[in-house]
């Protein structure tokens, strides 16, 4: 999940009786699965929560280009290079779809990006981990995009129309990302040298736990989840999504012939799910707060790009104004 901790500003969910007439009408619409559109009345909390969630999601897509950008200049073959470039480009595109959805709520993209660069808002913790070998390009596609897809498929039904439509578009485009990643790993495991196979296992060892953290804190530690679920901004709880992801991923892991760095991971016949070990939540909160391996570098890179590009954007605007002036003078 790309939005791991979204503040709703609500301590608890209001009952219908406690709501104002407008709030009640709004909640009934949500309950009836009617999509909310930009010009509809909405509680301020709903609007703010959405802006936070969508911008976190968008920031994550954009920052998420960097760990892969780290290898795009070193991709080993023409085919792999082209695939990786297309995937990274999609991520920039998905960031833009999401910012566009966010702007329908009256938020300003540039302001939200400034907040990111000032360290005031979050993005997915996963992108603060370094990509250290080529197999990471496979693992990021398979595990990281895989975890994101589990969440995004559900978000296609989110209550806010523009967000939902952006998610539908993103899901359609993202289906190739996970396959692309898995295929990299599969080829390395099947036909690779011993060194290449070790590369894969090393990569899985590093990305396994951070991928599980992508779904955010456990349900009992997520006070904001309930309100988000009532507003149908979120559709499934963090723990439910995490379990879904693990259940679908373990067989794929076994098919690769690799292992997870979790001695407690095993099938539980009774539950019909995989059991898994305790996530290191201290690490999760550390990374989210900015103390991950790459937090500083990621934000610096993005800030330098946008700040360093100010004169470029300024020039384009000045040129556009001059052209418009010329046209008016000619008319």
């Amino acid at each position: 999940m790309y939005a791991q901790l979204v503040e709703t500003g609500a301590k608890r969910v209001k009952s219908l009786e406690e709501m104002s007439p407008e709030e009640r009408e709004f909640q009934l619409k949500i309950d009836a699965e009617t999509k909310i559109e930009a010009k509809n009345w909405m509680p301020e909390g709903y609007r703010k929560t959405l802006i936070r969630q969508i911008s976190q999601h968008a920031h994550s897509e954009v920052v998420g280009m960097l760990p892969e950008g780290n290898w795009v200049t070193r991709a080993p073959t023409l085919k792999r290079k082209l695939q990786l470039m297309a995937k990274i480009q999609d991520e920039a595109g998905h960031g833009l779809y999401l910012y566009s959805a966010m702007e329908t709520l009256g938020a300003d993209r540039d302001e939200e990006i400034d907040k990111l660069h000032e360290g005031k808002v979050k993005y997915s913790s996963i992108f603060n981990y370094p990509t250290l070998n080529w197999a990471d390009m496979g693992t990021v596609g398979w595990l990281v995009d895989g975890a994101a897809i589990v969440n995004q498929v559900v978000l296609q039904r989110t209550s806010y129309g523009p967000y939902s439509r952006a998610m539908i578009r993103i899901c359609k485009e993202e289906s190739f990302h996970q396959r692309q990643g898995y295929q990299i790993l599969l080829d390395l495991m099947r036909e690779g040298t011993e060194e290449q196979k070790q590369m894969v296992q090393d990569s899985i060892n590093r990305f396994w736990w951070p991928s599980l953290m992508m779904f955010g804190p456990s349900d009992d530690q997520s006070p904001n989840s309930q309100q988000s679920m009532a507003w149908k901004i979120k559709r499934k709880s963090n723990d439910e999504l995490r379990q879904m992801f693990i259940d679908q991923t373990v067989p794929q892991l076994e098919f690769l012939g690799c292992t997870a760095p979790d001695p407690d991971l095993k099938w539980n016949e009774e539950r019909g799910h995989y059991d898994f070990g305790e996530i290191d939540w201290q690490e999760f909160y550390d990374v989210l707060k900015g103390n991950g391996p790459c937090n500083k570098e990621r934000i610096e890179t993005r800030k330098n790009a946008i700040d360093g590009g100010a004169w470029v954007r300024e020039a384009a605007r000045a040129y556009a104004e001059k052209q418009q002036q010329k046209q008016q003078n000619a008319a």
């Binding site: 280009m65 950008g69 890179t301 946008i306 590009g309 100010a310 470029v312």
Partner: peptide, 25 residues
């Protein structure tokens, strides 16, 4: 490709990568 994630505007990320994709193709 070296400019990935470093373009002066988000829209330019798309455009640069498009051109790069065409060229490597």
């Amino acid at each position: 490709c070296e400019l990935c994630g470093k373009a002066p505007a988000l829209e330019e990320e798309m455009a640069l990568m498009n051109v790069a994709l065409d060229l490597v193709g």
